[in-house]
Design a protein around this nucleic acid. Structure first.
Lengths: 351, 351
DNA sequence: GTTAGCACTCGTCACGAGTGAGTGCTAACA
DNA sequence: TGTTAGCACTCACTCGTGACGAGTGCTAAC
């Protein structure tokens, strides 16, 4: 779709205005902003064309125009300009790299908070997805006669733990041997690398007491395979109330509900099938393009954050389709870089 | 304050009605419900007396009456009847005692969910407060050359962990000795019992390498002393939107804000100074009785849950002053008993 | 192709009448 | 002395109406 320079500018004016005011834009308003060289009547003609193209629409016959979903998509793909973070925003992010953060959980929560504060939208952050994370250490901690706590440390210093009940009561020596064997064979591997070969050689080494090993292996596999174990953090959910498009109780309700449920939050981080743009690693899904009913009135802007250039977790915000995409993109870019720095610091690594 | 039988019944009718309808109650409405033996005019006279006593009030000169805060307090302390859980509610709770819950975190979240679902109010649940919980096991897990992960298991099977950087790089043997020493001297103790004497004897035993022990002791102390480490879970925050008294955006906003911040949530579990009733271990704080500005329009109903009759954690709900106190009390009672059962199962103990 | 002018549409706001739920007061009654 | 019926009064709420204004499309002139 090609537009004349003037139509392009008019569409841009409509989108920008509507993003900030949530009010339909009339021809006269644009004529004034666009400069004295053009009359409102001309703008009206142009707007009529834009409407025919499906880029803008009207709420009723005599209202101003609002961008359509197609219009937003056009804007995001073709018109949105890169926007540097405002000075105070950049400073805010600087301050976020707090020293002595040694709990991934805390860092995630703080990230979500920063994200929602800067964008004024609900923010969702998922912790690093273990699938691509390596096991750094495994430890068995006795809890009960037959129960042990299996602690798994990843290379991002995230810690998972689960109590496992063993078939026999393991002596101290057996526990030590189990620990050693698990570490020897599993440390340094990610999920893909824990395959049949690996497990077989582990069982072989352990010989007669292999039956003690099995439940542990199951749990280790479960802990890293199951997406279930990835924690998701939200912040600023109430921000949706500030958008007039959610003043309808029912719409807000559905969103709130979804944002409280882990399952629906995880679905935000699924691969995106529908049309969406990916620019500098930022994906934008607008309105109907979303797969889930509760998101049809919203747009999702998300980014993966990465360690050593491997994507391992997601940050995202949700807002009305009218949201300030350009600003969202710059904030997400900034924050995902931030996380990378912090995680690298955490894992004590040199990038 | 003594009331005649009739005034008592009228007040009761007003409170009960208002709790369920949120509409001011008129004399005629009461006359009809109260039975045919009394006229609305008489009720009006009685209501006038109740108003003089400060138990009910009017929104404007010709409106019906609503209970005042003092009226709710009177109701809670003197009139509220014990109410058994409804059959389906009891069943719901039964179903909650899920097998194989071996993560305290998950259990807490489920509890909050149940609480908010049954009361239709925002629910807040704090995990067991370590101050009264005993250390079951300590473990040092190597993470880096100089960094170790300190894992602390409590007798409720809750697990805390934190990465500690040591002054020297500890060898494997040193780590083992550290682990042993910590366990020998700290296991089975709660915070009060980790005193100077305990620490001194620990340092003495360890002799020349005491400097390695100090940072660890600091962290252990921090982990259990700091109330900071108690996690708080919420659920059903959006429920406040269903109450007409929070249709005002600003009121809802303040509440949402507070319910997202750990600090304000923790304050809900502080000792209660003001007037409040405690009945079967349930505390009720009504409106202005609350210490915090953001709670002045709400009532708080909370209960401690306990293991071996020691209070260790809290569950609570927040609602409008008009909330259904009797029902809240029965739900909180049921759930706190539930938690006790689950935790006992978790800690593998025989009550 | 652009623009001024004009008739038309439609949402919003302010106003006023009507309605109904509720009250207090008074006088009569048991 | 307590209870009740009747009545005048208050006040929030609803609904219809008219004025207003922002916006449009169409037409004719430039």
């Amino acid at each position: 779709m090609e537009l004349t320079e003037r139509k392009f500018k008019i569409l841009e004016a409509i989108v920008n205005d509507y993003i900030h005011t949530a009010e339909p834009i009339g021809s006269r308003t644009i004529a004034k902003k666009y400069g004295p060289g053009i009359s409102s009547a001309t703008i009206r003609n142009e707007m009529s064309d834009l409407e025919d193209l499906g880029l803008i629409s009207r709420l009723h016959s005599s209202s101003g125009r609002v961008p359509s979903q197609k219009g937003y998509r056009f804007y995001v793909d073709r018109m949105m300009r890169e926007q540097p973070l405002a000075g105070d925003e950049a400073l805010f992010l600087q301050g976020m790299i707090i020293q002595n953060i040694n709990q991934v959980e805390f860092m995630m929560q703080e990230t979500a908070k920063a994200l929602s504060r800067l964008t004024r939208c609900p923010a969702i952050v998922s912790e690093p997805y273990l699938k691509k994370t390596k096991i750094r250490h495994l430890q068995l901690v006795p809890v009960d006669e037959r129960a042990v706590l299996l602690v798994l440390v990843t290379d991002t210093k995230a810690v998972k733990n689960q109590v496992v009940t063993l078939p026999d009561a393991p002596g101290y020596d057996v526990l030590a041997r189990l620990s050693q064997a698990l570490n020897k064979h599993l440390v340094g591997k990610n999920v893909r690398e824990i395959d049949r070969t690996c497990i077989d050689s582990l069982l072989e080494v352990f010989g007669p007491q292999a039956h003690m090993l099995m439940p542990l292996l199951g749990i280790v596999a479960g802990m890293i395979q199951a997406e279930d174990d990835v924690r998701v953090f939200t912040s600023g959910v109430k921000n949706i109330l500030a958008f007039p498009e959610f003043s309808d109780r029912n719409k807000a309700d559905a969103l709130f509900q979804a944002l409280e449920e882990r399952e629906s939050l995880m679905s935000l981080f699924a691969p995106i099938a529908n049309a969406s743009s990916s620019r500098k690693g930022i994906q934008i899904v607008i309105g109907d393009e979303n797969d889930f009913e509760w998101l049809k009135d919203c747009s999702l802007v998300r980014a993966g954050y990465s360690i050593d250039n491997q994507s391992t977790g997601y940050i995202a915000i949700i807002g009305p389709t009218r949201m300030d995409y350009a600003h969202a993109v710059s904030v997400l870019t900034g924050i995902s870089q931030n996380i990378r720095q912090v995680i690298q610091a955490l894992s004590g690594g040199n990038a």
